[in-house]
Write a protein that binds this DNA or RNA. Structure first.
Length: 559
RNA sequence: GGCCCCGUAGUUCAAUGGAUAGAACAGGAGACUUCUAAGCUCUUGAUCGAGGUUCGAUUCCUCGCGGGGCCA
């Protein structure tokens, strides 16, 4: 039983002894360190039941509590809070645990034995990989790692739109303007041209619609140019996944899901779940408080909705999953509500285990990003910018052959941090001109703190000072008081699908470490506390490294 | 028009219904010639408006205003 559970158990017992029932004691970490390590408001909540003033009741409760192992002091404060101050011994033991557990520090068993699929990133071949995909990848990868951290087996999936109107728009321009389908940049330009023509030129619209039909029909004459464009796009995406630290287990494609979706739609029509309307097939979402969406067009082609049905089913046929999670931007919230409602009627067992998690959008400070307007910030260009700045900053240091790899890690860290520092659902206002920060609250700041700690540990080895908990100073550092909370943070981040709890935690931790580092000489042969300080540094480095891993950010040894 | 999300320092973000609303950036001041200055210390500055629920509201509810998104 961990310390929080011990305190809660003691509180429950004390409440019982005072004859108060039906009040569940909740523990929190006070905002202010002066208020202890844990606090409970249970006395405020129970005062009414006990018919006493909150403060008086809190005093009685503290009397009834007696002592709790690991707690040095219990105090009543403010309007009736009960504050718990943990003991020197507790923290020293905790630091020792972190050092001993190492890379497993922060892991839980919340999802032990479960098999969970995460689908995320979802870029479309024939279109560019833009910062929105970067965002989806960042959020999805972090959630996947948080899930693995809880003991589950995670299956990573990527769903890519290799058929549909966007492909037709691109191919139309490729054929017309003689673009090279092997060249990803030319494909991007072709898509922009096709999309623009589709809106403004009725003739072009007709031609594009025809190409779309031919693609669905498997027209052989389009095959070579289609295949070239598709593989060029996919190869380029693969380079990015490697850089970003994602390795997918499954790749799904819309071209495959189309026929499956049409089957499911046909089945749904027979069962009265879908209905025909004006030649198309729709699902009347109004019956469950939503809106109507089209699942099969008048022309008989499957819509995104139909393909999604096929995809959701396929996932469970392919893998024995306990849950399937789909991560997308929140512009798809409405889409998923309706599709999952239809799925709940069609395949209830699949729908019940499928969950859609959405994140905010990357919003440019200069206006909405659109490939037609040509103001798309691509994943590659953003990473390249950051990499150049990292290299510039590293120029004074001799990092040799590792430089390129370190610069990549820093670039990715800067971007991922920006995404993961805030609540998942919120939009990110991105200013392409003022580039991302390497200073203050930033990914590189976290990495830098970690490398500093490793530097200290290196020096400790040189000076032959080994980590030891024997001589802990009487003063308990704030760093210790925050380090032990790490598993609580990872658990909460997973439960709420909010990686930013990890991010803000790591920022606080790094600040405390850097402050302590500036104040104390850690490696000092003349200081009897030095072995303890080295252990504390080790505990910090371990926590930071594990925490960064959860965010999908590499922790280089040097930078 | 219908539905969904979001409004917190100048800016970008935090805050589990709790105690004095925290950081970072920008601005101002400073220390150190010691394990990486991508750092540290100090400092100026904020809950969109009106009601309601509650012992207590940035947080929950209603209405309004403002921004974003989705659907016809």
């Amino acid at each position: 039983m961990d310390i929080a559970a011990r305190i809660v158990a003691a509180l429950e017992k004390a409440l019982q002894s005072l004859g108060v029932e039906g009040v569940v004691p909740a523990l929190e970490h006070p905002n202010d360190f002066a208020h202890g390590d844990y606090a409970t408001n249970v006395a405020l909540a129970a005062a009414k039941v006990a018919a006493k003033s909150p403060k008086a009741f809190a005093e009685e409760l503290v009397q009834a509590l007696g002592t709790v192992d690991g707690v040095a002091k219990i105090e009543v404060a403010g309007p009736g809070f009960i504050n718990f101050y943990l003991s020197r011994k507790f923290f020293a033991t905790s630091v020792a645990d972190i050092v001993a557990v190492g890379s497993d520090w922060g892991k839980t068993r919340m999802l032990g034995g479960k098999r969970i699929m995460y689908e995320y990133t979802d870029p479309n071949p024939f279109k560019v990989f833009h910062i929105g995909h970067l965002m989806s990848n960042t959020v999805g990868e972090s959630l996947a790692r948080l899930t693995e951290n809880a003991g589950a087996t995670v299956v990573r999936a990527n769903y890519q739109g290799d058929i549909g109107p966007h492909v037709a728009k691109c191919l139309w321009a490729v054929l017309r303007e003689g673009k090279d389908p092997h060249n990803v940049e030319e494909l991007g330009a072709a898509y922009a041209a096709g999309a623009a023509a589709y809106e403004t030129d009725p003739v072009a619209k007709g031609e594009i619609d025809t190409i779309n039909q031919r693609l669905y029909a498997g027209d052989e004459t389009l095959k070579s140019v289609y295949d070239a464009g598709r593989s060029a796009s996919l190869a380029r995406f693969e380079e990015l996944y490697a850089l970003l630290g994602t390795a997918f287990d499954h790749y799904f494609f819309e071209s495959v899901m189309g026929p499956l979706g049409l089957q499911l739609v046909a089945e749904g029509v027979q069962r009265g779940i879908f209905e025909e309307s004006d030649g198309a097939v729709v699902y009347r979402g109004e019956k469950v408080g939503l809106h109507t969406r089209v699942f099969r067009t008048k022309a008989g082609t499957p819509t995104y909705e139909a393909k999604e049905l096929g995809l959701d089913k396929t996932k469970f046929e392919l893998e024995k999953l306990d849950h399937s999670v789909i991560v997308t931007a929140n512009e798809q919230d409405g889409f998923f509500k309706v599709v999952l409602a239809a799925l709940a009627e069609l395949l209830p067992d699949v729908a019940q285990k499928t969950r859609h998690i959405s994140h905010g959008m990357m919003v440019l400070s200069t206006g909405k990003m659109s490939s037609r307007k040509g103001n798309v910030v691509t994943g590659e260009s953003l990473i390249a910018d950051m990499r150049a700045r990292a290299l510039e900053k590293m120029s004074g240091r001799e990092l040799g052959a590792e430089s390129a790899s370190i610069a990549d890690a820093i670039a990715v860290a800067a971007i991922k941090f920006e995404v993961l520092k805030q609540g998942t659902g919120k939009n990110i206002v991105f200013d392409p001109d003022s580039s991302l920060s390497f200073e203050g609250d930033s990914g590189p700041y976290l990495q830098y703190s970690h490398t500093r700690a490793l530097s200290v540990l290196n020096k400790a080895r040189e000076e032959k000072i080994t980590a030891s908990l024997a001589m802990a100073p009487d003063t308990i550092e704030l760093l210790e008081r925050v380090l032990f909370r790490f598993p609580e943070v990872t658990a909460r981040a997973l439960t709420e699908y909010e990686p930013h709890y990890v991010t803000t935690y790591l920022i606080e931790l790094a600040g405390l470490f850097n402050s302590w580092y500036a104040r104390e000489k850690i490696v000092d042969p003349l200081d009897p506390h030095s072995p303890f300080k080295v252990a504390l540094t080790q505990a910090f480095a371990t926590t930071m490294k594990n925490g960064l891993w959860l965010l999908g950010i590499r922790a280089p040894d040097r930078m």
